[in-house]
């Protein structure tokens, strides 16, 4: 059984921020799909769980010029998104059960090095909107993930939502041992292609470092050129060279490096 904790259910964002900033041993509970397993395993332990699952103002999803995703939007809600890139990511997360409860904001705040949304948001160049005791902040995704399970969130701060533009073209390619397992490696690409030439591309990867990273050499290589087989091949090679993949029980660094190359190739092939 999970060790005892105090449970506080909040119904508004100010209430959540108030409890989280007052109580040092407090953690927010959204979908709980990472938090609950961690509590069971004693990897994490908190004196207070602040259940933000019923905070209405974090539950919004708007598709305009800018896509606005509230922190409490659950993965499954993006499975049929009008933005193709989001659909491609959402359907590859965990399994339907996890997608029923897991939230986009939770995935960002948790910053699991193999979580899907942090890499996807890197490719999108998203802005992370936070709420905290000192008010609201907007943090560029490139500055948000600081390391494995580490983010730019200060004490008492929450992810409130994300904003980005749906890319004209995008792809998400993920390799995992089992269908619902964490990624061995994954590549997210957002790009615009005009008259056969790539005008810009943001390429992010999981399993290429100890945290999700942008593959900047690959991005530079793609900029302004047509997406020919040769370009794609050299991008795949550059990705393998640029990466410093971690080794763990799921895969060796060398295997991840090889997969990364294939993932880049397939992702670019789908643009």
């Amino acid at each position: 059984m999970i060790p005892r904790f105090e449970y506080i259910r909040v119904f508004s964002l100010p209430e959540a921020v108030d409890v989280l900033s007052r109580r040092e041993d407090a953690a927010p509970l959204a979908g709980g799909q990472s938090l609950i397993p961690m509590l069971k395993l004693r990897v994490a332990s908190y004196g207070v769980l602040v259940d933000i699952g019923r905070v209405r103002e974090l539950r919004y999803l708007r598709y305009g010029d800018v896509v606005e995703v509230g922190a409490l939007v659950r993965h499954y809600e993006l499975e049929e998104s009008p933005c193709g890139f989001l659909r491609g990511v959402a359907v590859r997360i965990g399994d339907p059960q996890v997608r029923s409860l897991g939230t986009v904001g939770g995935s960002l705040a948790h910053a699991d090095p193999f979580g899907d949304w942090p890499a996807a948001m890197l490719a999108l160049g998203a802005v992370v909107k936070t709420a905290g005791p000192d008010g609201a902040r907007e943090v560029a995704i490139d500055d948000f993930v600081k390391g494995p399970y580490q983010t730019a969130l200060e004490r008492g701060e929450l992810v409130a939502g994300l904003e980005f533009r749906c890319p004209p073209r995008g792809a998400y390619v993920k390799f995992a041992r089992r269908h619902n397992d964490f990624a061995l490696t994954a590549v997210a690409v957002a790009a615009e292609v005009k008259e056969g030439h790539v005008s810009w591309a943001r390429v992010a990867a999981l399993g290429a470092a100890d945290r999700p990273v942008r593959l900047r050499k690959v991005e530079a290589l793609l900029s302004g050129v047509p997406l020919t087989a040769d370009v794609i091949a050299s991008a795949a090679e550059a990705a393998a060279k640029e990466a410093q993949p971690p080794a763990d029980f799921r895969a060796s660094a060398e295997y991840r490096r090889a997969l990364l190359s294939v993932a880049v190739k397939r992702a670019l092939g789908r643009l």
């Binding site: 509970l29 709980g32 059960q97 996890v98 029923s100 409860l101």
Partner: peptide, 10 residues
């Protein structure tokens, strides 16, 4: 209406 793993929900 959605499937969830009841061992992973408080």
């Amino acid at each position: 209406g959605r499937p969830v793993k009841s061992c992973n929900v408080l």
